[in-house]
């Protein structure tokens, strides 16, 4: 049994399927997440695949701030992701609402709607930072 569990933790750490969802931000963060998938950074070497389908997802990367309309969408998405899951907020917008915090349509960071596991600061964070953020969240799967 112990070994099965060990193997499961190992597989979970090695096989993360990710999806990114861009909320009310400027896109800069999405672009950097895209860039992290491509040859220079290559997320797939860690077993991270971009699935784009919430039902297949382990890691959700949220970029951008929450507004009154996309709040529901975000919530729906999260509900479709089977546990165990990891939620990473990428960029200042997703952390606090960032530069748009005072705008009338902005509620705030992603943590207003969901429980965020890892926060990656930056506007936008570099792809290296995004990768580091995802990998540092892996310990969540130990339990």
């Amino acid at each position: 049994m112990g070994m099965m569990k060990h193997l499961m933790v190992r597989s979970r750490r090695r096989s993360l399927w990710m999806m990114h969802f861009c909320l009310g931000g400027c896109n800069g963060c999405s672009i950097e997440i895209m860039a992290a998938l491509t040859p220079m950074y290559d997320l797939e070497r860690f077993g991270i695949l971009n699935t784009g389908n919430p039902k297949h997802t382990d890691v959700l990367l949220v970029g951008g701030s929450v507004n009154h309309r996309n709040r529901r969408t975000l919530k729906n998405l999260i509900d479709q992701i089977p546990a165990p899951r990891l939620i990473v907020a990428v960029g200042t917008c997703a952390l606090t609402g960032g530069i748009f915090n005072e705008a009338y349509n902005i509620i705030g960071g992603a943590n207003r709607v969901v429980d965020v596991d890892v926060y990656v600061p930056g506007c936008p964070p570099k792809p290296e930072a995004v990768i580091d953020g995802i990998l540092s969240g892996l310990d969540k799967f130990e339990q």
Binding site: L23, G24, N67, R69, F100, A103, N105
Partner: peptide, 22 residues
């Protein structure tokens, strides 16, 4: 509407130099 932030209205709270960053 999913990305609408209303940043044009930010002019009331940020001065015109800060608006460059917005």
């Amino acid at each position: 509407g999913y990305v609408h932030r209303g940043l044009e209205a930010l002019v009331v709270s940020k001065d015109f130099r800060q608006m460059t960053r917005v």
